[in-house]
Write a protein that binds this DNA or RNA. Structure first.
Length: 574
RNA sequence: GGUCCCGUAGCUCAUCAGGAUAGAGCGACAGAUUCCUAAUCUGUAGGUAGCAAGUUCGAGUCUUGCCGGGAUCACCA
């Protein structure tokens, strides 16, 4: 149990006793009471919002209520001072030993420190990337890929049973275009002159490999044959080839999907029909004519009667068509079926990581999921804003048509997977991200990946320098310097941080925490430069050295724990 | 025009389900290297959190309206 959790438990005992004594009303909800590090160190070691959170329930003013708590808190083990501040905060100062008590816990847990079961083993399905199978992953896909995978790692660390899933859009018109494009390359590979790739087809050179593969496999079988004879076969083979490439790109990013779901397989299985019936039976469907979009009416707008889903009943802005005017299903209908399929398979919550261009899709998918599950909170969608690629401040020009878009493979070659992963997590997902090749390859304070990895390597180096092996379980009473204690406090914050990051579905918090932790360690390391008495290894002072090395060891464990959650290497030497 | 996201120091961004005097890095300025990795650290300067109301003990955070930037907008996928 961390110091924070220990104080929260001790506080609960105090408030229960006060309730028994009649000083406080019964039935107090103290779930929002927290003990945390105050932002400002001068406020002490720990601060609690208890008086402010409970004031309304107790029918008292925060400061008056605080007075009641102060006397009891002052008697707790290791508490050296208690004061009321500001609107009703209670600030505590505690003996260093209460902090250093955390170190043995960390040393025992190793890089599992902070691992918890707040997810309670509940299943969760995280769908991410899901790029169309028409070409290799490009740089913009990397952000969603990393956020999804890091979130999965984070939630697994917090006791969720996570499935990483990729939805293959292999049923629409775009894979037919892929098939025609691949067919051309196949003809080329069989010695035909194909000239310019016609507009509307994919010109990318990556398809020449696919064409050669097809040529090797089918010889001249499909040459000069009508489209309906070759299209399904070519399409399927091309998709398989492209997906193999995507899987490799993901693997190079350190990502391994648990499941790939095929839209075509879903549609062929009749799942769409079933999902529609489900909505129909629940009374969420009707035939009707949609109004044109407000403000901007498409020029070729014409009213059509369609099968519509009553999305407005679930918070969407307009109802959504499930069937085209020719009777075939819309993409949205397949997506509804897919989400029903995920709900049934997962028997738990769903999370989708979408790109910014799918922002308009959020409400309708949440509406559909709510209608299918009968619960409004089964689906969370994280939108990733755009990534601006730059090189030394200059925008990197990308054109899909010219085939000059930057692939994930290119970026991995240029900067490495660890850098991509970490940088993609140094922004909140809903904030646009500047990815500057020049900056992220720099080995300096400006590059957070390097900064954190260096802290870990430095800690390992200190441990290597030790004259004697660390004896764990030995006294830590000599850890008393404020800079040392600041590091211990930061370490002790990890379990709570990781838990709240998982709860909020925000893996970037882990990245920022690691930068903070690395800073606390670098700072302490340098304190030993100005003041040799603060170094970790001190000749002839075995007890002091041993205590400090335990702290260093604990630091390396927590950095490693954080990097592991994000699937980034914790290097021991640089 | 509708919807969604964003607007915080010169720049890039944090702010942990509303908390104290809004924090980091870069850049600027002033310093630290016979010493566990100076690839680092210490200090100074820098703010009306786009603007205006509202909600309450308390708002960068929640609500509304404006302003600015981005994404997206019926049978495409």
């Amino acid at each position: 149990m961390t110091v924070f959790a220990a104080f929260e438990a001790e506080f609960k005992t105090i408030s229960d006793r006060l309730v028994e004594a009649g000083s406080l009303p019964k039935g107090l909800d103290s779930s929002r009471v927290v003990f945390e590090l105050p932002r400002d160190e001068t406020h002490g070691d720990l601060a609690t919002n208890a008086a402010m959170v409970l004031a309304k329930q107790a029918g008292m003013k925060p400061r008056d209520l605080a007075e009641i708590f102060v006397a009891a808190l002052a008697k707790l083990d290791g508490v050296t001072a208690v004061e009321i501040a500001g609107p009703g905060f209670i600030n505590l100062r505690i003996a260093p030993t209460r902090w250093t008590a955390e170190i043995p816990t960390i040393l025992t847990a190793g890089d599992s420190y902070g691992k918890n079961n707040s997810g309670g083993g509940a299943p969760v399905n995280i769908e991410f990337v899901s790029a169309n199978p028409t070409g290799p992953l490009h740089a913009a896909h990397a952000r969603g890929a990393v956020i999804g995978d890091a979130l999965a790692g984070l939630m697994a660390f917090c006791g969720w049973q996570v499935t990483r899933e990729y939805y293959i859009n292999d049923a629409g018109a775009q894979v037919d275009i892929l098939a025609r494009s691949a067919y051309l390359r196949y003809c080329e590979a069989r010695g035909r002159d194909i000239g310019e790739i016609p507009a509307g087809l994919y010109p990318g050179l990556y398809l020449t490999d696919v064409g050669e593969m097809l040529a090797a496999k089918y010889g001249d079988d499909f040459l000069d044959k009508p489209e309906d004879e070759w299209l399904p076969t070519i399409r399927s083979a091309a998709i398989t080839a492209i997906m193999a490439g995507i899987e490799k790109d993901l693997a190079d990013l350190g990502i391994s999907m648990d499941r790939f779901s095929s839209e075509r397989a879903l549609v062929d299985s009749g799942a769409v029909q079933l999902a529609i019936e489900r909505l129909q039976d629940a009374g969420h469907l009707y035939h009707g004519v949609l109004q044109p979009p407000k403000g901007k009416e498409p020029e070729d707008w014409e009213p059509r009667e369609q099968l519509l889903f009553k999305a407005t009943a679930f918070g969407d802005d307009t109802d959504r068509p499930l069937q085209k005017s020719d009777g075939s299903w819309t993409y949205f209908a397949a997506d509804v079926a897919y989400h029903l399929n995920k709900l049934e398979r997962t028997k738990g919550k769903l999370i989708n990581i979408f790109g910014a261009d799918h922002g308009g899709y959020v409400k309708r998918m949440k509406a559909a999921t709510a209608a299918l599950s009968g619960q409004s909170d089964m689906l969370d969608i994280k939108l990733c804003q755009l990534v601006h690629l730059r090189d030394n401040g200059q925008p990197v020009k990308m054109s899909k048509r010219a085939g000059t878009f930057v692939t994930v493979e290119d970026v991995i070659k240029a900067v490495g997977a660890d850098v991509i992963r970490f940088i993609m997590l140094t922004r909140r997902n809903d904030q646009t991200l500047e990815f500057d090749f020049a900056k992220v390859t720099e080995q300096s304070r400006d590059n957070p990946v390097f900064y954190v990895q260096y802290a870990h390597a430095r800690a390992c180096s200190v441990l290597r320098q030790a004259a004697k092996p660390i004896k764990t379980g030995q006294s830590l009473d000599l850890i008393t310097d404020p800079a040392e204690l600041l590091l211990v406090k930061t370490l002790a914050s990890w379990p709570k941080l990781v838990e709240s990051a998982a709860l909020a579905h925000e893996p970037h918090r882990v990245a920022f925490y690691l930068v903070d932790l690395a800073g606390a360690f670098h700072s302490l390391w340098n304190a030993g430069r100005d003041n040799p008495a603060l170094r970790f290894n001190i000749d002839g002072q075995d007890d002091l050295t041993n205590a400090r090395l335990q702290l260093v060891q604990a630091t390396s464990f927590v950095i490693r724990a954080g990097l592991n959650v994000l699937s980034i290497a914790a290097v021991e030497e640089m």
